[in-house]
């Protein structure tokens, strides 16, 4: 049984039907990053454009030039850090909207328009924002909780007689911590699905239910999450090779890279949608939805996606 729950098939179908939406979302991601990227580009332009070896500076990364760009006052780094932080904050506030849309696509199992996508996302925005906030706080606390473990392993590793086992211990420990983040991310995805599926308002209660659900069905939930994660890593790897090959100093190569970047971002967004759609299918099936396809088994009509959400009155 390659796909015992039918989740892969359902997720794939959801992604196929939402191609345009995913591309639009990637475009919005790109727009959010544009101010910081424009600043970086302008800063480089101001420093390099009038130099006699400007083309060489475009062709290869020059640490000496970067030293001058950063300068002694650190303005470039400070500004870029501020802009990057702003972009990440903006992302944080925009993501719940998109996640709401992804869950809606998963629920519908059919094409939805962009305005529906936004409206459905908006309908669950505050709930999903709360989930994201809980995610940030939990991830932070998780990392604090991992600190003593990491320190302990560091101390132990330093006492090893050779570097190999010391590195192995560190890698395994970091893998464990990273896996904890990944499980947390998976639970949060199931929480979003659960809130939308069951239309229950309590975020904390749903978070707990989802955690229990994931723990009760580790093979299906974590297995599918690992699959989505694996696909994302494979996509990144493939594009890494492509982007390195496309690297160059000319405007046309820069434009090509920009297009490749947006395709990659769209594919990574598709992976998120893939996971949400699969999660919907798994949760629906395990919680009594039968073998029906994602979204269709609940018998919701089109308008139902936008109505009957108790927290919206």
């Amino acid at each position: 049984m390659i796909d015992p729950t039918g989740s892969v098939r359902a997720a794939w179908r959801a992604v196929r039907r939402a191609k345009r939406l995913v591309i639009l979302v990637a475009l919005v991601d790109g727009l959010a990053c544009l101010p910081a990227a424009i600043y970086a580009g302008l800063a480089v332009h101001r420093s390099a454009a009038h130099q006699t070896d400007a083309t060489a500076l475009a062709r290869t990364f020059d640490p000496d030039f970067m030293a001058d760009l950063r300068g002694t006052d650190g303005d470039f780094d400070a500004t870029l850090i501020a802009l990057t932080t702003s972009t990440l904050v903006l992302f944080f506030f925009v993501r719940p909207l998109f996640m709401g849309g992804y869950v809606a696509i998963a629920a519908r199992g059919d094409r939805i328009r962009f305005d529906e996508f936004i409206r459905v996302g908006g309908a669950v925005y505050w709930k999903f924002l709360r989930i994201a906030l809980i995610g940030v706080v939990t991830a932070y606390l998780l990392s604090l909780a991992a600190s003593p473990l990491l320190d302990y392993i560091d101390d132990q590793a330093a006492n090893f007689r050779t570097e190999g086992p010391a590195l192995t211990y560190r890698r395994i420990t970091e893998l464990v911590v990273f896996a904890a983040f990944w499980v947390l991310g998976t639970i949060l995805d199931y929480t979003r699905v659960g809130i939308r599926m069951h239309r229950r308002p309590g975020v904390f209660a749903e978070l707990l239910r989802s955690a229990v659900f994931v723990m009760q069905h580790p093979v299906e939930t974590l297995g599918f999450s690992a699959l989505a994660f694996g696909i994302e890593i494979a996509v990144i790897w493939a594009f890494a090779l492509l982007l390195q090959a496309a690297d160059g100093a000319y405007l046309i190569t820069s434009v090509a890279i920009l297009i490749l970047v947006q395709i990659l971002v769209a594919l990574r967004e598709a992976c998120r949608l893939f996971h949400h759609a699969g999660a919907w299918r798994i949760r629906r099936r395990e919680e009594g939805g039968g073998e029906a396809e994602a979204g269709r088994a609940d018998g919701l009509a089109r308008d139902d996606l936008l109505a009957n959400l108790p927290w919206n009155g």
Partner: peptide, 13 residues
């Protein structure tokens, strides 16, 4: 030339 600015702006993006 705009080459360095565009190149590294896109890379940063």
């Amino acid at each position: 030339t705009t080459r360095p600015g565009v190149k590294w702006g896109v890379r940063f993006m």
